[in-house]
Simulated assay, not measured.
Amino acid sequence: MPDRTPTSTAPRAGSVSGKLRAMVWLIVLPTLLLSVIAGMAVFHTERRAAVSAATETAEALSLVTDREMAVRTALLQALSVSPSLAEGRLAQFHGEATRLVAGTPSTIVLTAPDGRQLLNTRVAWGQPLPAAAAFPGGIDTRRRLIVSNLYLGPVDRRPSFAVRVPVTVAGQAMFLGLGSPVSEMQQIFRQQPLPAGWLGVVLDGQGAVIARTREPERRVGQRATGDMLDALARADRGVVDLRTLDGEPVFTAFSRAPDSGWVVLIGLSQAELAKSAWAAFAMMLALSLVFIVLALVLARRMSRAIAEPLRRL
């Protein structure tokens, strides 16, 4: 007679263990994929946050630049009400202006509409005066403040800039100006220190370097790169991907000061930015891998705990 011994229907321990491992991997692999996606999201978020911070900093420092010009303009406006100036007693006014800037690197100059200097606090009264140098091409009438571009001081030959205000002298229209060395604009970055690795630059209205956080003594007076000048011709603020005068690839946030027309640039090294973002990505991925390994260990122990009683059947 045929053997009718019933076949055992008890689950095999190996089959159960294998199915548990397969189930764990079905959970782990999507989790790993999601971790990679989340890490990439962190990478891009870190980069966007850094660029956004640079943009805000550029806009804030452009307003600081305008404030520096406004302070100088206010000083000239206060000086312009001097009776000796209004009445044309220029010898007396020369003494007043000289005392005002004594002990500072600044110069007060009175010029005629045709650009001739009538008074210069760096030149003794009655001595021959140099040709005016601050506003050779006129002024930008779109701006609230009258600010020059970079020029070489006619007396001390230092890179300088100037602000000026219109005045009336003995019934005639003239200009009262205050010239200062561009090195004074470095105080913007001393008062508002930038994070390590950031590059700060101030440009005049024609794109010449006025102040710089790195090697200002080498770069002051140089024009910005062609790519940067093209970007400034298209917009007053934005972010561009270009190279610095040193040849370093950077993301550059720029903002033009509304009242003076000068520009502040904040450069972020692409290499440093990528390093920071990749570090955040790596940390996110490492934490995910730790949790995945712990899940695998726990699943292995659970599969053993389930499979062991089945082997005894």
Rank of each mutant, 00 (worst) to 15 (best):
K275T: 10
K275C: 00
A277F: 04
A277W: 03
A277Y: 09
W278N: 13
A279V: 00
A279K: 12
A280C: 00
A280W: 06
A280L: 08
F281E: 09
F281N: 05
F281H: 04
A282R: 10
M283T: 11
M283H: 10
M284H: 10
M284D: 13
M284V: 14
M284E: 12
L285N: 08
L285G: 02
L285W: 11
L285F: 13
A286N: 01
A286E: 05
A286V: 00
L287G: 00
L287T: 02
L287D: 03
L287V: 03
L287K: 01
S288K: 03
S288T: 02
L289Q: 06
L289C: 05
V290T: 13
I292F: 01
I292P: 02
V293Y: 02
L294T: 08
A295H: 10
A295M: 12
A295E: 07
L296Y: 01
V297P: 00
V297G: 00
L298C: 05
L298K: 08
A299G: 13
A299S: 14
A299W: 13
A299M: 06
A299F: 10
R300Q: 13
R300K: 13
R300T: 12
R301M: 14
R301T: 04
R301C: 06
S303K: 07
S303H: 06
S303E: 15
S303R: 12
S303Y: 09
S303L: 07
R304Q: 11
R304D: 14
A305H: 12
A305D: 14
I306N: 07
I306C: 03
A307P: 07
A307V: 03
A307W: 10
A307F: 09
A307R: 05
E308Q: 15
E308V: 14
E308C: 05
E308H: 13
